[in-house]
Design a protein around this nucleic acid. Structure first.
Lengths: 231, 231
DNA sequence: CGGGCGTCAAGAGCGATGCTCTCTTTTGCT
DNA sequence: AGCAAAAGAGAGCATCGCTCTTGACGCCCG
């Protein structure tokens, strides 16, 4: 409870400002942001930045964690705004939250979901914030099962045994009671959500699909149907 | 039919060698490849490379086009190996061809399907090669319709009108006779294919799913079922 | 067959990058 | 009030993409 020292506070503020400026640069320069340019924007000399971040990679890692946390928070907030038992409403809310956040912060989205920088290994610190979004998505299904609103879908291809083993590990650790088939479908939905947003953001449907939002919604509903979310 | 001059031939060979070396560097350095390093590997001086490529971006563009053509050729070859009327077999072949190529050439896959380099606008020359893969995928459905093996699926969410308009344009220009609902489902499958491969390649299912191939196959079959490909 | 032209590689150089090291100044705690 | 720790400034190193100039080589045509 000790009040943080003045030094520590101004340091934290400066660190935040550096991150903010870096984020601004990220929007225009992408992943290849320049430490010197950030320093210039802050009226500093490049070497001074090294008092706050040991390297450019470290700055990037911090931005990555922040981005994961930002989209995770946005998604969780969107989910929280919907009645717990309205599974389909929650599903829609999460999907739109992901897309809206990505459209509002394309550079940061690309940073975390785009091609990884070669030679850059994501530190362990990133995995925690990284799973917030998919966990929120899958939790909708878990809540549905717990509330008796959702059961494992019957038809379709059988779940291959090795996949079932992988998913079972996940069921035991985080989503007890959820059928493996259902959780797998949740992950499939998460993969498709990511694919749809990335496709739109990375320009793969330029000159092909112009009704972006409607196309996104269509896929959102399609996946909800596939999972068997009650209308 | 005039024999190309010796000058032109050695020039072409050198150009190819530069691309090959650059591709090798791409595998380790990613999109931020160094012209000077490529030149060093070729026993040249950096400035000499500018005789062959006007800029680094231009080299990258060439590599991008080559990559699109490579995966497109691999996909078309895989599709061609299957009986024309075996729609599901062709679907599976194309899916696996995409994944296999991506796993074999991760850097080039990231180059074309990863986050776009900011400030880099894909030239028109890329769109031709870029659509080879999705066209091959959707053509399976078109062939199925032409052969009377496939019809528009009944259930599911209704296609939103703006999306129908976008898809109708595509139907008229490239896939006459294909119902818009079906072609849309084909694109959904293409998006999911891209999402699944990208997820695997970009490390998003590290420490979660280990049975990569089986998980991929499961999604491949799921999408085939969704489209209604006859077993 | 030989001179001229076009192509090519090389080198030096410019501005910029990430990062390190040293030095000076500021600053907050005791 | 004084001191030690922290922060900033500056120079410097190796590297980058790119430009310009300078020789040298090979090809084509008279």
């Amino acid at each position: 409870m000790s009040a943080p020292s003045i030094r520590a506070r101004v340091r934290a503020e400066l660190t935040d400002e550096i991150k903010a400026v870096a984020r601004r640069h990220l929007a225009t320069d992408g992943a290849n942001l320049s430490l010197r340019a950030v320093a210039r924007d802050m009226g500093m000399v490049s070497s001074a930045l090294y008092r706050y971040f040991p390297s450019r990679d470290d700055l990037l890692t911090t931005l990555i964690i922040d981005a994961y946390d930002a989209i995770g928070a946005a998604v969780e907030a969107a989910d929280a705004r919907v009645d717990r038992t309205d599974l389909r409403g929650r599903w829609y809310a999460v999907w739109h939250a992901v897309r809206d956040w990505a459209l509002a912060n394309p550079a940061e989205y690309a940073l975390i979901y785009g091609s990884p920088v070669p030679g850059y290994a994501a530190p362990q610190d990133t995995i925690g914030p990284a799973i917030r979004t998919p966990v929120t998505l899958v939790r909708i299904l878990a809540d549905g099962v717990a509330a008796g609103l959702l059961t494992a879908p019957g038809g379709g291809a059988a779940l291959p045994e090795p996949v079932r083993a992988d998913v079972a590990r996940l069921v035991d650790s985080d989503f007890p009671g959820v059928p493996a088939e259902l959780l797998t479908l949740g992950m499939v939905g998460w993969i498709h959500l990511f694919g749809a947003v990335s496709f739109e953001l990375f320009g793969q449907l330029n000159n092909v699909i112009f009704a972006r939002r409607e196309a996104f919604q269509y896929q959102m509903e399609l996946m909800a149907d596939l999972i068997g979310l009650p209308a």
